[in-house]
Protein backbone atom coordinates (compact mmCIF):
# COMPACT_ATOMS: atom_id res chain seq x y z
CA UNK A 1 0.00 0.00 0.00
CA UNK A 2 1.38 3.38 -0.89
CA UNK A 3 1.16 6.58 1.11
CA UNK A 4 -1.44 7.81 -1.33
CA UNK A 5 -3.53 4.67 -0.97
CA UNK A 6 -3.40 5.05 2.82
CA UNK A 7 -4.71 8.60 2.43
CA UNK A 8 -7.52 7.25 0.24
CA UNK A 9 -8.28 4.64 2.89
CA UNK A 10 -8.53 7.34 5.56
CA UNK A 11 -10.86 9.39 3.32
CA UNK A 12 -12.94 6.27 2.72
CA UNK A 13 -13.24 5.61 6.46
CA UNK A 14 -14.27 9.18 7.25
CA UNK A 15 -16.81 9.08 4.40
CA UNK A 16 -18.22 5.89 5.89
CA UNK A 17 -18.89 7.58 9.25
CA UNK A 18 -15.92 6.21 11.13
CA UNK A 19 -14.30 8.56 13.59
CA UNK A 20 -10.61 8.20 12.91
CA UNK A 21 -8.05 8.97 15.61
CA UNK A 22 -4.33 9.03 15.04
CA UNK A 23 -1.35 10.84 16.48
CA UNK A 24 0.53 13.79 15.10
CA UNK A 25 2.74 16.63 16.24
CA UNK A 26 0.77 19.38 17.97
CA UNK A 27 2.72 22.29 19.47
CA UNK A 28 5.88 20.23 19.74
CA UNK A 29 4.24 17.20 21.34
CA UNK A 30 3.02 13.99 19.76
CA UNK A 31 -0.65 13.75 20.66
CA UNK A 32 -3.62 11.72 19.51
CA UNK A 33 -6.27 13.73 17.69
CA UNK A 34 -9.23 13.16 15.43
CA UNK A 35 -8.49 13.11 11.69
CA UNK A 36 -11.09 14.90 9.60
CA UNK A 37 -9.67 14.38 6.12
CA UNK A 38 -7.54 11.81 4.34
CA UNK A 39 -5.89 14.20 1.91
CA UNK A 40 -2.42 15.08 3.29
CA UNK A 41 -2.68 12.43 6.04
CA UNK A 42 0.70 11.09 7.03
CA UNK A 43 1.25 8.26 9.46
CA UNK A 44 3.28 9.62 12.36
CA UNK A 45 6.14 7.23 13.18
CA UNK A 46 6.83 8.68 16.62
CA UNK A 47 5.30 7.45 19.85
CA UNK A 48 2.35 9.47 21.12
CA UNK A 49 2.86 10.85 24.65
CA UNK A 50 -0.42 9.34 25.84
CA UNK A 51 -1.39 5.85 24.81
CA UNK A 52 -4.64 4.80 23.16
CA UNK A 53 -6.02 3.29 26.39
CA UNK A 54 -8.42 6.18 27.00
CA UNK A 55 -10.50 5.11 23.99
CA UNK A 56 -11.34 1.81 25.70
CA UNK A 57 -11.01 2.85 29.30
CA UNK A 58 -12.00 6.53 29.50
CA UNK A 59 -10.48 8.57 32.35
CA UNK A 60 -14.04 8.98 33.65
CA UNK A 61 -17.07 7.07 32.46
CA UNK A 62 -20.67 6.78 33.54
CA UNK A 63 -21.54 3.26 34.63
CA UNK A 64 -25.16 3.81 35.56
CA UNK A 65 -27.61 6.49 36.54
CA UNK A 66 -30.26 6.57 39.23
CA UNK A 67 -33.36 8.71 39.39
CA UNK A 68 -35.81 8.52 42.30
CA UNK A 69 -33.90 5.44 43.51
CA UNK A 70 -34.44 3.62 40.20
CA UNK A 71 -31.73 2.72 37.73
CA UNK A 72 -32.17 4.56 34.46
CA UNK A 73 -30.44 3.57 31.25
CA UNK A 74 -27.18 5.12 30.14
CA UNK A 75 -27.04 6.12 26.51
CA UNK A 76 -23.71 5.15 25.03
CA UNK A 77 -23.82 5.97 21.33
CA UNK A 78 -22.33 3.26 19.14
CA UNK A 79 -19.70 5.41 17.48
CA UNK A 80 -17.58 3.47 15.05
CA UNK A 81 -14.03 4.42 15.92
CA UNK A 82 -10.75 3.74 14.17
CA UNK A 83 -7.51 3.96 16.10
CA UNK A 84 -4.92 4.43 13.41
CA UNK A 85 -1.19 3.93 13.70
CA UNK A 86 -1.01 2.11 17.02
CA UNK A 87 2.53 1.05 17.67
CA UNK A 88 3.44 -2.54 18.35
CA UNK A 89 3.91 -2.00 22.12
CA UNK A 90 0.60 -0.15 22.43
CA UNK A 91 -1.15 -3.02 20.64
CA UNK A 92 0.46 -5.31 23.19
CA UNK A 93 -0.95 -3.10 25.95
CA UNK A 94 -4.45 -3.09 24.40
CA UNK A 95 -4.20 -6.87 24.05
CA UNK A 96 -3.44 -7.11 27.78
CA UNK A 97 -6.26 -4.70 28.69
CA UNK A 98 -8.72 -6.71 26.63
CA UNK A 99 -7.77 -9.72 28.80
CA UNK A 100 -8.08 -7.81 32.07
CA UNK A 101 -11.45 -6.36 31.01
CA UNK A 102 -12.65 -9.54 29.31
CA UNK A 103 -15.87 -9.56 31.34
CA UNK A 104 -16.30 -5.82 31.50
CA UNK A 105 -19.33 -4.76 29.44
CA UNK A 106 -18.21 -1.12 29.20
CA UNK A 107 -14.79 -1.99 27.82
CA UNK A 108 -16.05 -4.74 25.53
CA UNK A 109 -18.76 -2.55 24.03
CA UNK A 110 -16.19 0.06 23.10
CA UNK A 111 -13.88 -2.60 21.68
CA UNK A 112 -16.71 -4.02 19.55
CA UNK A 113 -17.22 -0.65 17.91
CA UNK A 114 -13.56 -0.09 17.33
CA UNK A 115 -11.06 -1.01 14.64
CA UNK A 116 -7.43 -1.18 15.63
CA UNK A 117 -4.94 -0.36 12.89
CA UNK A 118 -1.36 -0.93 13.97
CA UNK A 119 1.95 0.17 12.54
CA UNK A 120 5.50 -1.09 12.80
CA UNK A 121 8.34 1.24 13.68
CA UNK A 122 10.05 2.81 10.73
CA UNK A 123 13.14 0.82 9.85
CA UNK A 124 16.35 2.80 9.99
CA UNK A 125 17.91 0.93 7.13
CA UNK A 126 16.61 -1.68 4.74
CA UNK A 127 18.63 -4.46 6.33
CA UNK A 128 17.35 -3.58 9.81
CA UNK A 129 13.81 -4.46 8.85
CA UNK A 130 12.02 -5.73 11.83
CA UNK A 131 9.83 -8.40 10.39
CA UNK A 132 6.45 -8.73 11.97
CA UNK A 133 6.06 -12.33 11.14
CA UNK A 134 3.27 -14.50 12.35
CA UNK A 135 4.85 -15.38 15.69
CA UNK A 136 4.61 -11.78 16.85
CA UNK A 137 1.48 -10.56 15.15
CA UNK A 138 -0.58 -13.66 15.88
CA UNK A 139 -0.62 -12.78 19.57
CA UNK A 140 -1.70 -9.17 19.11
CA UNK A 141 -5.24 -7.92 18.92
CA UNK A 142 -5.61 -5.81 15.79
CA UNK A 143 -7.78 -5.52 12.71
CA UNK A 144 -5.24 -4.20 10.25
CA UNK A 145 -1.48 -3.86 10.58
CA UNK A 146 0.76 -1.67 8.46
CA UNK A 147 4.34 -2.83 8.25
CA UNK A 148 6.35 0.14 7.16
CA UNK A 149 8.85 -0.40 4.37
CA UNK A 150 11.04 2.18 2.76
CA UNK A 151 12.69 1.67 -0.60
CA UNK A 152 14.80 4.54 -1.90
CA UNK A 153 13.07 6.89 0.51
CA UNK A 154 9.75 5.82 -0.91
CA UNK A 155 7.52 4.76 1.97
CA UNK A 156 5.07 1.93 1.51
CA UNK A 157 3.26 -0.57 3.70
CA UNK A 158 2.93 -4.32 3.75
CA UNK A 159 -0.61 -5.03 4.92
CA UNK A 160 -1.78 -7.69 7.35
CA UNK A 161 -5.26 -8.30 8.65
CA UNK A 162 -5.91 -9.74 12.08
CA UNK A 163 -9.68 -10.05 12.05
CA UNK A 164 -12.59 -10.62 9.72
CA UNK A 165 -13.67 -7.03 10.30
CA UNK A 166 -10.29 -5.91 9.03
CA UNK A 167 -10.58 -8.05 5.91
CA UNK A 168 -14.10 -6.84 5.22
CA UNK A 169 -13.05 -3.24 5.58
CA UNK A 170 -10.17 -3.59 3.11
CA UNK A 171 -12.31 -5.60 0.67
CA UNK A 172 -15.01 -2.95 0.73
CA UNK A 173 -12.43 -0.25 0.26
CA UNK A 174 -11.14 -2.20 -2.73
CA UNK A 175 -7.68 -3.22 -1.53
CA UNK A 176 -6.83 -6.89 -1.95
CA UNK A 177 -3.08 -7.14 -1.44
CA UNK A 178 -3.08 -8.21 2.21
CA UNK A 179 -2.12 -11.30 4.19
CA UNK A 180 -4.29 -12.58 6.98
CA UNK A 181 -2.94 -13.62 10.36
CA UNK A 182 -5.21 -15.65 12.59
CA UNK A 183 -5.31 -14.37 16.18
CA UNK A 184 -3.89 -17.15 18.37
CA UNK A 185 -4.75 -15.61 21.72
CA UNK A 186 -2.66 -13.17 23.73
CA UNK A 187 -0.11 -15.65 25.05
CA UNK A 188 2.50 -17.58 23.06
CA UNK A 189 2.48 -21.33 23.65
CA UNK A 190 5.60 -21.18 25.78
CA UNK A 191 4.05 -18.49 28.04
CA UNK A 192 6.46 -16.14 29.74
CA UNK A 193 10.07 -16.18 28.66
CA UNK A 194 12.92 -17.02 31.05
CA UNK A 195 13.76 -13.39 31.81
CA UNK A 196 10.13 -12.57 32.58
CA UNK A 197 9.83 -15.64 34.80
CA UNK A 198 13.01 -14.93 36.73
CA UNK A 199 11.98 -11.29 37.16
CA UNK A 200 8.96 -12.44 39.20
CA UNK A 201 11.35 -14.03 41.70
CA UNK A 202 13.86 -11.21 41.60
CA UNK A 203 11.31 -8.48 42.29
CA UNK A 204 10.12 -10.45 45.30
CA UNK A 205 13.68 -11.01 46.50
CA UNK A 206 14.47 -7.31 46.13
CA UNK A 207 11.70 -6.26 48.56
CA UNK A 208 13.19 -4.03 51.24
CA UNK A 209 16.55 -3.74 49.46
CA UNK A 210 18.55 -0.60 48.76
CA UNK A 211 16.96 0.21 45.42
CA UNK A 212 13.54 0.69 47.01
CA UNK A 213 15.00 2.85 49.80
CA UNK A 214 16.57 5.03 47.10
CA UNK A 215 13.32 5.20 45.12
CA UNK A 216 11.51 6.07 48.36
CA UNK A 217 13.59 9.26 48.48
CA UNK A 218 13.44 9.97 44.77
CA UNK A 219 9.81 9.34 43.80
CA UNK A 220 7.41 12.19 44.58
CA UNK A 221 4.19 10.12 44.25
CA UNK A 222 2.87 12.34 41.47
CA UNK A 223 1.37 9.41 39.57
CA UNK A 224 2.33 10.78 36.14
CA UNK A 225 3.83 7.41 35.20
CA UNK A 226 0.55 5.65 35.85
CA UNK A 227 -1.38 8.14 33.72
CA UNK A 228 0.84 7.74 30.65
CA UNK A 229 1.37 4.00 31.15
CA UNK A 230 -0.59 2.08 28.50
CA UNK A 231 -1.15 -0.87 30.86
CA UNK A 232 -2.08 0.97 34.09
CA UNK A 233 -5.77 0.35 34.62
CA UNK A 234 -6.51 0.89 38.34
CA UNK A 235 -9.86 2.51 38.85
CA UNK A 236 -12.23 3.76 41.50
CA UNK A 237 -16.01 3.81 41.52
CA UNK A 238 -17.96 6.64 43.10
CA UNK A 239 -21.33 8.37 42.98
CA UNK A 240 -21.93 11.92 41.94
CA UNK A 241 -25.14 13.75 42.71
CA UNK A 242 -26.26 15.85 39.76
CA UNK A 243 -29.37 18.07 39.68
CA UNK A 244 -32.12 15.47 39.46
CA UNK A 245 -30.14 12.28 39.12
CA UNK A 246 -27.25 10.35 40.52
CA UNK A 247 -24.38 9.12 38.39
CA UNK A 248 -22.23 6.14 39.35
CA UNK A 249 -18.93 6.62 37.58
CA UNK A 250 -15.66 4.82 37.10
CA UNK A 251 -12.48 6.88 37.02
CA UNK A 252 -8.81 6.18 36.57
CA UNK A 253 -7.02 5.93 39.89
CA UNK A 254 -3.34 5.76 40.71
CA UNK A 255 -1.69 3.51 43.26
CA UNK A 256 0.74 6.37 43.94
CA UNK A 257 -1.99 8.36 45.65
CA UNK A 258 -2.09 7.93 49.42
CA UNK A 259 -5.84 7.37 49.60
CA UNK A 260 -5.59 4.46 47.16
CA UNK A 261 -5.17 1.97 50.00
CA UNK A 262 -6.97 3.91 52.73
CA UNK A 263 -9.67 2.13 54.71
CA UNK A 264 -12.05 3.50 57.33
CA UNK A 265 -10.19 4.81 60.35
CA UNK A 266 -7.70 6.43 57.93
CA UNK A 267 -5.38 3.45 57.96
CA UNK A 268 -3.34 3.18 54.76
CA UNK A 269 -1.95 -0.20 53.79
CA UNK A 270 0.50 1.28 51.29
CA UNK A 271 1.70 3.92 53.71
CA UNK A 272 5.07 4.96 52.30
CA UNK A 273 6.41 5.90 48.88
CA UNK A 274 8.56 2.78 49.07
CA UNK A 275 5.47 0.59 49.53
CA UNK A 276 3.66 2.33 46.71
CA UNK A 277 6.41 2.22 44.10
CA UNK A 278 7.18 -1.40 44.99
CA UNK A 279 3.49 -2.19 44.55
CA UNK A 280 3.57 -0.56 41.09
CA UNK A 281 6.50 -2.71 39.99
CA UNK A 282 4.88 -5.74 41.65
CA UNK A 283 1.77 -5.19 39.54
CA UNK A 284 3.72 -4.86 36.30
CA UNK A 285 6.32 -7.58 36.81
CA UNK A 286 4.74 -10.01 39.26
CA UNK A 287 0.94 -9.84 39.43
CA UNK A 288 0.15 -9.34 35.73
CA UNK A 289 2.64 -12.01 34.55
CA UNK A 290 1.23 -14.45 37.12
CA UNK A 291 -2.39 -13.75 36.22
CA UNK A 292 -2.22 -13.33 32.46
CA UNK A 293 1.09 -14.97 31.47
CA UNK A 294 2.06 -11.68 29.87
CA UNK A 295 4.45 -8.98 31.06
CA UNK A 296 2.69 -5.95 32.51
CA UNK A 297 5.20 -3.55 30.97
CA UNK A 298 5.41 -3.18 27.20
CA UNK A 299 8.65 -1.23 27.32
CA UNK A 300 7.28 1.95 25.73
CA UNK A 301 9.43 4.19 27.92
CA UNK A 302 6.67 6.74 28.61
CA UNK A 303 6.98 6.57 32.42
CA UNK A 304 10.69 7.36 32.21
CA UNK A 305 10.03 10.25 29.83
CA UNK A 306 7.45 11.95 32.05
CA UNK A 307 8.98 11.27 35.47
CA UNK A 308 9.87 14.62 37.06
CA UNK A 309 12.29 12.83 39.42
CA UNK A 310 14.23 11.13 36.64
CA UNK A 311 13.28 7.56 37.55
CA UNK A 312 14.22 5.22 34.71
CA UNK A 313 12.26 1.97 34.70
CA UNK A 314 14.67 0.19 32.33
CA UNK A 315 17.66 1.03 34.54
CA UNK A 316 15.79 -0.10 37.66
CA UNK A 317 14.79 -3.43 36.14
CA UNK A 318 18.34 -3.98 34.95
CA UNK A 319 19.58 -3.26 38.47
CA UNK A 320 17.02 -5.56 40.10
CA UNK A 321 18.08 -8.35 37.74
CA UNK A 322 21.78 -7.77 38.48
CA UNK A 323 21.50 -7.33 42.24
CA UNK A 324 19.20 -10.24 43.03
Amino acid sequence: MTDKQLQDLVSYLIKNKYRVHSHKEIDGEILIDEIYEGKNFELCPQRPLYSFKKFLLPPCQTMMKFKNNKTIGVKNPDTKTILLGIHFYDLKALTLLSQVFEKDPYFQKKLRNMMLIGQSPIPAKDEDYQKFEEDILEHLKFDIFLETKSNNNQKSFRIFTGSEDGQRLLDNFGYKDYEHIEYAGPVPEEGLNITQKSLIEKIFKSKGSKIWKELNKKCIDCGKCSIVCPTCFCFKISDEIKKDKIVRKREWDSCFYEEFSEVSGEHKFLDSTEDRIYNWYDHKFVRIPKEYSMPGCVNCGRCTEVCPAGIDIRKNIKRIIEEN
Partner: peptide, 16 residues
Protein backbone atom coordinates in the same frame (compact mmCIF):
# COMPACT_ATOMS: atom_id res chain seq x y z
CA UNK B 1 -10.09 -0.81 50.37
CA UNK B 2 -12.16 -2.29 47.55
CA UNK B 3 -13.94 -0.85 44.56
CA UNK B 4 -14.80 -3.63 42.11
CA UNK B 5 -14.98 -6.76 44.27
CA UNK B 6 -14.03 -8.92 41.29
CA UNK B 7 -10.23 -8.77 41.19
CA UNK B 8 -9.69 -5.95 38.71
CA UNK B 9 -9.41 -2.49 40.31
CA UNK B 10 -6.19 -3.32 42.25
CA UNK B 11 -7.14 -1.54 45.48
CA UNK B 12 -7.13 -4.75 47.53
CA UNK B 13 -4.09 -6.38 45.92
CA UNK B 14 -1.43 -7.91 48.12
CA UNK B 15 2.04 -7.71 46.63
CA UNK B 16 3.02 -11.06 45.21
Amino acid sequence: RMHCGIGVCQHCALVG
